[in-house]
Design a protein around this nucleic acid. Structure first.
Lengths: 227, 227
DNA sequence: TTTATAAATGTATTTTTTACACTTCCAAAT
DNA sequence: ATTTGGAAGTGTAAAAAATACATTTATAAA
């Protein structure tokens, strides 16, 4: 048998839930659809799978096309396959979420009319994209409490306050400052720099960086990140 | 626009990781492939997505075709899309896992030469099916400790010992009997029947059933299953 | 009636999580 | 030079959860 004859093929797309953090709020990057149907409505950035790429590559390409970024943390979520999910044509879509450091992308590709929204102020999205975002949030919450992915959303140097604010935004709950810092310090995977952020207070607060090497060594010794 | 022209379609398949439990071991149901390539090798049960069904329906159909079972617990896992994953033709596959009560399926569809394997004795599988099984195991472990899905693998009535053995098989670790029973009883979602299983000892051990109604009420009151 | 075997049961200890308040530092204002 | 305001930084006691652990009980078979 040279191929699977008589089997029907289907359009396969990827849709990206792009998360960012502006030191205050968890954000999501959306684009304004400029063609019918649903023209003018907000949507996730997406694209079709090409024959010479796998899904990870398609998601990476689509993300790069909008943001210009490479080497972004992405993770596949799941497939959406309701028969009528896309009114134009039967399309199965695989969702991915991306975590990007907002400061890093200089300019968004203008042609998509993209805009960052606070996750709480997200507009209603087309098709099943609202569901995709909801599911992505729940995966992000889980992942953030078992893997040190939060740092993907922060600049290289960050303060404890920023880190706590980020986790509060992801988990959707307020955390006790002392308990949070004690827990983080207990993990022993951050480096305290000499530098201070003088923007937030007279006293200033120390910048930290994530010690990825140390983390990897600890993991290989059986350490499991847990927040 | 009536459809997305110029976009290439792709074959989309589902593959099922079918778990069972025979009161002793966690098992997986595999089929023997009877056509080239890889003829004679073991494989997951799978099938192609049809144009008039979504992925859940495809997975349900495929499972039913092999086992004759309906109303089986299934959960979508993830997509596999490596360009050369299927040597016959480019195919993207979405994996699902199913939890079935082994006693329930009277007869397997003979035409697939299906066989139950202890999960530890699983043979090498075709394509990327080994990876699919590995990922399914890890999802099963997570799910089993946060949702009461273990009962899907057990008969209506089961003993505490059987339940513990099941969880040990899923989690891959031995558990302390008293702590296990205390924890389960603490959840307060089982009904202790009057009946005893006399097969395992002179004394006999009580049968329990899962109180799904009570569980649902508790969940709606904010209760979260956690083992 | 003795014996063998799995079933059933509770508590003390350790670990983890939570709750909670005062002092320090420094720029800006006086 | 001194005061002031505001966020940064820090530790401990109490509560809750997880763990370790050993004896008695019920029954069929010998």
């Amino acid at each position: 048998m040279k191929n699977y004859n008589n089997q029907k093929k289907v359009l396969l797309a990827v849709d990206c839930i792009i998360f960012g953090f502006d030191k205050k709020n968890l954000k999501i990057l959306l684009i304004k659809r400029d063609f019918e149907p649903e023209k003018g409505h907000w949507s996730l950035m997406g694209g079709f799978l090409k024959t010479d790429e796998n899904l990870d590559e398609a998601a990476t390409r689509v993300l790069n096309h909008l943001t210009g970024l490479d080497n972004v943390y992405m993770e596949q979520l799941r497939s959406y396959s309701a028969l009528d999910r896309d009114p134009v044509e039967r399309t199965v879509s695989v969702s991915y979420y991306a975590l990007i450091n907002i400061e890093e992308h200089s300019t968004l590709n203008e042609s998509f009319s993209a805009k960052w929204f606070n996750i709480e102020d997200k507009p209603d999205l087309i098709f099943d994209h609202n569901l995709m975002v909801k599911n992505a949030m729940s995966r992000l919450r889980y992942r953030a409490s078992t893997k040190p992915i939060g740092f993907e959303l922060l600049p290289e140097k960050f303060t404890m306050k920023q880190l706590q604010t980020l986790y509060e935004a992801i988990l959707g709950e307020t955390l006790d400052k002392r308990n949070f810092i004690n827990k983080i310090n207990g993990l022993d995977i951050l480096i305290k720099t000499e530098e201070k952020d003088m923007g937030s207070s007279r006293k200033g607060s120390y910048f930290y960086t994530f010690d990825e090497e140390k983390y990897k060594v600890k993991v290989s010794d059986g350490f499991a990140f847990k927040l």
